[in-house]
Design a protein around this nucleic acid. Structure first.
Length: 480
RNA sequence: CGGGGCAUGGCGCAGCUUGGUAGCGUGCUUCAAUGGGGUUGAAGAGGUCGUGGGUUCAAAUCCCGCUGCCCCGACCA
C-alpha cells in the first residue's frame, strides 16, 4: 500500500485522523443523503456488542423492549412547550403520503417522548399499572447542520428508555439507576473513564426537569457526552395527560423518565483508545478478539499450518473467545498484520512452519502496536494465556485513558488558568454563575459546563469567573 | 444562512494558465513467483471529465447558469 494511504497522525490532525480511520477501518461510510451514515458490518458488529451489554443490564433491572412508530403527528411535538422549542429546528417533516398531500404533517421522530406519552396515557389507569419500564432500540432523525460519522449524523441508531412512575422518588431513583448503568458500562466494558454528573440548565434536555450525563474525554482533550438520563418530572405527564388513580381513589399525574445511548458511543471508543496505527477496541466489545494469521510458503506447508491453526481456533472458541482466521491467499502476512491493527483487534496469533516445528506461535497485543508487543509463546496453555492477555489489555486501556484524562484535567481558580486548561482538556472549577455567565464563558473560550459531577467535594469555594461564593464544582470543556 | 474550497475510472489525484487522441498512483481481474511487518513481475478490465447552456472547425480546459459535497461559524447526542 502506498505511503499516502497511511493514517494521518492522531496528534497532527485529530479530526482528519478520525475521519480517515472510520473509513479505512471499514466501520461506516457516508450515505447518499448529506449527513447520513451507512454502518458497515464491522461497525455494526461493534454496535451489537454494545447493545448486548446494555440490554442485559436493562433486562436485569426489569425493563422490556418494545417497538414504536417512527412517524409522529406534528401536533404531538407541540404539546410540550420546551420540547417543541428544542426540537423544531431540526425536524424532518413528511408532507406527502400515498401521492397526496397530508392533512397534518408528520414528523420523523427526533426522539420518542411524545408518542410514548400518547401511549402511556392510554395504558395507565391505576397505580397498579405502574411502573412502566420500556426500552426502544431504534433510529431517530435530527436535521443537524453539520455532521460527522458516528458523532452527529442525520439519522442515528440508539436505545431510548421511557419509564412512568407513581412517585417523584421512584422517577428520581430510575434516572439515577440508569446513569449508574451507563457509567458502569462505559468504565468496565468500554474502558472509557467517564464522569457522571448533572447538566446545567442551558444544556438540559428540552422538556426535562433534570438531565444527567456521562462525559468522556477524547484524545484531543475535548469532551463527548456519551449517554444521558433525564428526569422528566411531570412535564410530559401533564402534556399528554398520563394520570392514574392512587390507593385513595385520587387522580395523580405520573412521573416519567427517559434515557439514551447512541452509536455516538462508537465514536467515543475510537477517539478514546485509537492511536496512529488505527482503532484499538476494548476486548469486551471487540467483534473479533483474536485474529489468527496463518503463514505458509508452499502447498506442502499449508496443510500442517492450517491443521495447527484450526486446532488453536477450536480451543479458543471453546473458551468463548471471538476468533477469526485470516486465510486470504492474495495478501502478504505483513499486510494482514497492519490491517488487523487498523481494525483494532486486541490480540493476534501468527502461526507459520517454524511455529509448527517448535510448537509455538507469535502472540501480539494491540495496545503495544508493531513488533514490540509480539512474543513467541508455546502452543501449550495458549488459550489461558490469550484469556489473561485480553483481560490485561482491557485493564490497560482503562488505565491509560484514565491517566490521560487526569493529566488533562486541571483544578483552576482563576480565569487565566481556566483558559489554558480548556485548551487541552477539562477545567474543574467552583461555579456560581447564571446562564448569562455561562454563555459569556462559552463565547470567550468555546468551553461549556459539561456537568456538575455526582462526586462533589466537601466544602465550598469561590467561583473563578464571577468571584461569588460557590458550593458546586463544575467540569468545563470544549465539546463535540 | 455567512466565509473558504472542491467536483476527472472504485478511492486519491494530475491535466485547465496557453483549447487539439483521457493521464498517474492505488485498488480490481487473471497467471506465475513470493509469503515471519504494508511482496514482485507480466497481461487485462474500468471514465457521458457533476449538470444545463454558450463561444469555437474543435472544450476536461474559455464564458454564463444550476446542482452536489467538504472545511470554518451559528444548531446539536
Amino acid at each position: 500500500m502506498a505511503i499516502e494511504d497511511k493514517l494521518v497522525s492522531r496528534q497532527e490532525d485529530f479530526n482528519e485522523w478520525y475521519n480517515t480511520l472510520v473509513l479505512r477501518a471499514d466501520l461506516a461510510d457516508y450515505g447518499p443523503v448529506r449527513g447520513t451514515m451507512i454502518v458497515k458490518p464491522y461497525g455494526w458488529a461493534l454496535w451489537e456488542n454494545i447493545q448486548q451489554a446494555l440490554d442485559k443490564e436493562f433486562k436485569a433491572t426489569g425493563h422490556q423492549n418494545a417497538g414504536f412508530p417512527m412517524f409522529i403527528p406534528q401536533s404531538f411535538l407541540e404539546k410540550e412547550a420546551k420540547h417543541v422549542e428544542g426540537f423544531a429546528p431540526e425536524l424532518a417533516v413528511v408532507t406527502h403520503g400515498g401521492g397526496k398531500e397530508l392533512a397534518e404533517p408528520i414528523v420523523v421522530r427526533p426522539t420518542s417522548e411524545t408518542v410514548i406519552g400518547h401511549a402511556y396515557a392510554k395504558w395507565v389507569q391505576s397505580y397498579r399499572d405502574l411502573p412502566i419500564l420500556i426500552n426502544l432500540w431504534n433510529s431517530v432523525v435530527r436535521w443537524e447542520l453539520r455532521t460527522k460519522l458516528f458523532l452527529r449524523t442525520l439519522e442515528f441508531y440508539w436505545q431510548e428508555g421511557h419509564t412512568a412512575h407513581a412517585t417523584a422518588d421512584e422517577a428520581a431513583f430510575e434516572t439515577r439507576q440508569m446513569l449508574d448503568i451507563y457509567t458502569d458500562f462505559a468504565v468496565n466494558t468500554a474502558a472509557i473513564p467517564v464522569i457522571p454528573g448533572e447538566k446545567s440548565e442551558l444544556e438540559r434536555f428540552a422538556g426535562a426537569d433534570r438531565t444527567f450525563t456521562i462525559e468522556a474525554m477524547m484524545g484531543d482533550g475535548k469532551a463527548l457526552q456519551s449517554g444521558t438520563s433525564h428526569n422528566l418530572g411531570q412535564n410530559f405527564a401533564k402534556a399528554f395527560d398520563i394520570q392514574y388513580l392512587d390507593v385513595n381513589n385520587e387522580r395523580q399525574y405520573c412521573w416519567t423518565t427517559s434515557w439514551g445511548l447512541s452509536t455516538r458511543f462508537v465514536g467515543a471508543i475510537i477517539m478514546t483508545h485509537g492511536d496512529d496505527h488505527g482503532l484499538v477496541l476494548p476486548p469486551r466489545l471487540a467483534p473479533i478478539q483474536t485474529v489468527i494469521v496463518p503463514i505458509y510458503r508452499k502447498e506442502k506447508e499449508k496443510d500442517v499450518v492450517m491443521e495447527a491453526t484450526n486446532r488453536i481456533k477450536s480451543e479458543l472458541l471453546a473458551a468463548g473467545i471471538r476468533v477469526h482466521i485470516d486465510d486470504r491467499d492474495n495478501l502478504s502476512p505483513g499486510f494482514k498484520f497492519n490491517e488487523w491493527e487498523l481494525k483494532g483487534v486486541p490480540t493476534r496469533i501468527e502461526i507459520g512452519p517454524r511455529d509448527v516445528a517448535k510448537n509455538s506461535v507469535a502472540l501480539a497485543r494491540r495496545d503495544h502496536p508493531g513488533k514490540e508487543g509480539k512474543q513467541f509463546v508455546s502452543q501449550e496453555g495458549l488459550t489461558d494465556r490469550v484469556v489473561a492477555l485480553l483481560d490485561e489489555i482491557q485493564a490497560n486501556l482503562l488505565a491509560k485513558a484514565t491517566q490521560f484524562r487526569d493529566d488533562n484535567t486541571h483544578d483552576v481558580d482563576n480565569y487565566d488558568d481556566f483558559q489554558k486548561a480548556v485548551e487541552t482538556g477539562f477545567a474543574r472549577v467552583w461555579w456560581a454563575g447564571d446562564n448569562d455567565d455561562e454563555n459569556k464563558v462559552k463565547e470567550e473560550t468555546k468551553a461549556t459546563i459539561r456537568c456538575f459531577p455526582m462526586d462533589q467535594p466537601e466544602g465550598s469555594g469561590t467561583c473563578f469567573y464571577t468571584g461569588k461564593p460557590a458550593n458546586k464544582v463544575a467540569i468545563f470543556a470544549r465539546a463535540y
